[in-house]
Structures are given as C-alpha cells and as structure tokens.
C-alpha cells in the first residue's frame, strides 16, 4: 500500500468509515502483532496488545494530524502500549516456547528441529535480557529494517539516542551470543 493510499484510507476512517479502517488493519495487522510478540515473547499478550493498539488507533484517529505516516503513528501507539505493559509487568517476560507459534520448518529432521529450537531459545534469552527500550530499537531496526530517523520518531526520542541504544544493544547481544559468532 502506498503512502497516498494510506492517506486516503485514513481520511475516510477519520470520517467514520469503518471499512476504510478495516483495510488499514488488514495491511498492518501482522507488523503490529509481531512487534508486540517479539517484545513480550507471548502470543496471548501480543494478541491483546496488538488489538489494544488498533482499538486505540481507531478511537484517536481524529487526532492524527498526518505529520508522520500512518504506519509510524500506529507503530508509536503499539510500542508505547507494549513498553507501558512491560514496565507495569515489572520485568521482561520469561521465555516460553508458545504452542501457538511455529518456528521450525516441517521438512527438517528431528535433530535439526531440536538444534533450531535450542538456538532460538538462546537468541530469545539474549534479546530478552536487554532493557525494554533497547529491545524496542532492535525490533524496529533489525527486524523491521526502519531507518534510525523513523525509529526516533516512533520512540519519541532524538535520532542520536536511538542510534546509541542500538549500538549498546548490539554490543550486549554480541557478548551474549559470542559462541554463535
């Protein structure tokens, strides 16, 4: 979906067109879900948080000024809701292999599947040990491939701060995953 298509749908949704909002949800539901999932490592929480983000977006779409793209605005809502949740929950969520999530390729042998699961567990633990704000930049930069300027807009901080957090996060991950590098 182009920025212009987004813009038209947002305008319609602001006027109360629910179908226009549905199209926006269909476009971004996966990205929004995955941000919440990778931050919480829990399918149920990610489901609740991503839906909460869309409900909030629907309720406050009237206040969306269009200074940034709808995508950036939606990401900011999702990240804020997730960070808020993680802060209130007290700490990072423990790592659990979720039954609702499949990580292995069905064509792999059982040994390979086990190896993949162990590697996956190590990576998740390493990411989980990061402070939530560093985790958020890793999610946005590495997994979503967003430029640092846009990450700063989403997180509401300066570009230099976002870059510094990412530098720190990568340094910590390198230490924790040194056996795989």
């Amino acid at each position: 979906m182009t920025k212009n298509e987004d813009f038209i749908l947002v305008r319609k949704a602001r006027l109360g067109d629910k179908d226009a909002f549905r199209q926006l949800v269909e476009e971004y539901k996966k990205q929004v879900y995955f941000i919440a999932y990778r931050m919480t490592n829990n399918h149920a929480d990610a489901d609740d948080l991503s839906q909460e983000a869309f409900v909030k977006a629907y309720q406050s779409i009237g206040s969306f000024k269009g200074k940034s793209s709808f995508f950036t605005w939606l990401y900011r809502i999702t990240i804020n809701i997730t960070l808020n949740y993680l802060k209130k929950a007290g700490k990072n969520q423990p790592f659990e292999l979720d039954e609702n999530i499949s990580i292995a390729d069905s064509s792999l042998s059982p040994d390979k599947v086990l190896q993949q699961r162990q590697l996956h567990e190590q990576i998740t633990k390493a990411i989980n040990s990061l402070p939530v704000k560093e985790k958020a930049v890793v999610e946005l930069a590495v997994l979503e491939g967003l430029p640092h300027k846009q990450i700063a807009q989403i997180l509401g901080c300066r570009e230099k701060t976002a870059s510094w957090r990412l530098f720190q996060a990568r340094k910590k991950l390198k230490e924790k995953l040194s056996s795989f590098v």
């Binding site: 539901k29 990778r38 999530i101 499949s102 990580i103 997994l143």
Partner: peptide, 19 residues
C-alpha cells in the same frame, strides 16, 4: 552475524486462522 541471528526470531508465525 548477530543481526542474522536476531532475524531468526522473525521466522516465528502464529497459525493462518489467527490472522
């Protein structure tokens, strides 16, 4: 390499019916 390992997490997907 670290980025590559982190991206492995991106392979996680919930069921098709979920979406």
């Amino acid at each position: 390499k670290i980025d590559g390992l982190v991206k492995l997490k991106a392979k996680e997907t919930p069921s098709k019916e979920y979406f």
